[in-house]
């Protein structure tokens, strides 16, 4: 089970945080700070895994963004890399060649996509198509509500 996922930039700015374990806010901040420093200090030739406390950290850099996951001891770290990659592919499909700015300005979308891929730190859907379909349908639902709201606003409904 994945314990948490962090996205941060090369400058160490947090872009996304998803916690599947209940930590108090202070601890979350401490963990984030610690991991961001540790990972940014690692050289590119080093492997993507590190042992940290009683869990394993798997991280991978995509352009200017680091994707960092904490998994349990008996989880497969190579598979976690695949999950990260799958998430990046989904973001890419959704935003159309995603960049860091997309995730900054549409962070809620990035969360929604992650929530369609993972629940409780475990993968729920292995088909990219299904994830994107679910996101698209929910976006449509929002659009409909917006239109409906507007129509009501200007007295047309």
């Amino acid at each position: 089970m994945m314990l948490f996922m962090l996205l941060f930039s090369r400058q160490g700015k947090l872009r996304l945080q998803k916690w599947y374990m209940a930590y108090p806010d202070k601890v979350k901040k401490k963990i984030t700070r610690e991991l961001v420093t540790t990972i940014l200090a690692r050289k590119p030739k080093m492997c993507s895994f590190l042992e940290w406390k009683d869990c394993k950290i798997v991280y991978k850099r995509y352009a200017s963004l680091y994707f960092c996951c904490a998994i349990e001891q008996n989880d497969n770290e190579l598979l976690t890399l695949e999950i990260i990659h799958r998430y990046v592919e989904l973001l890419d499909k959704y935003f159309g060649s995603v960049c860091e700015l997309d995730i900054i300005f549409n962070f809620e979308k990035a969360y929604f996509i992650l929530d369609e891929l993972l629940i409780g730190g475990e993968i729920q859907e292995t088909s990219k198509k299904n994830v994107l379909k679910a996101i698209a349908s929910q976006d449509l639902l929002q659009e409909d509500e917006a239109v409906e709201g507007t129509l009501r606003d200007i007295g047309l409904l």
């Binding site: 809620e108 979308k109 929002q142 917006a146 507007t150 606003d153 200007i154």
Partner: peptide, 21 residues
């Protein structure tokens, strides 16, 4: 009028949230 209304009510608030960011 329609677009204005949409912009005002719609959740992802492209203008205001984006403005803040």
């Amino acid at each position: 009028a329609f677009t204005e209304a949409v912009e005002r009510v719609r959740m992802p608030t492209p203008t205001r949230l984006r403005d803040l960011i």
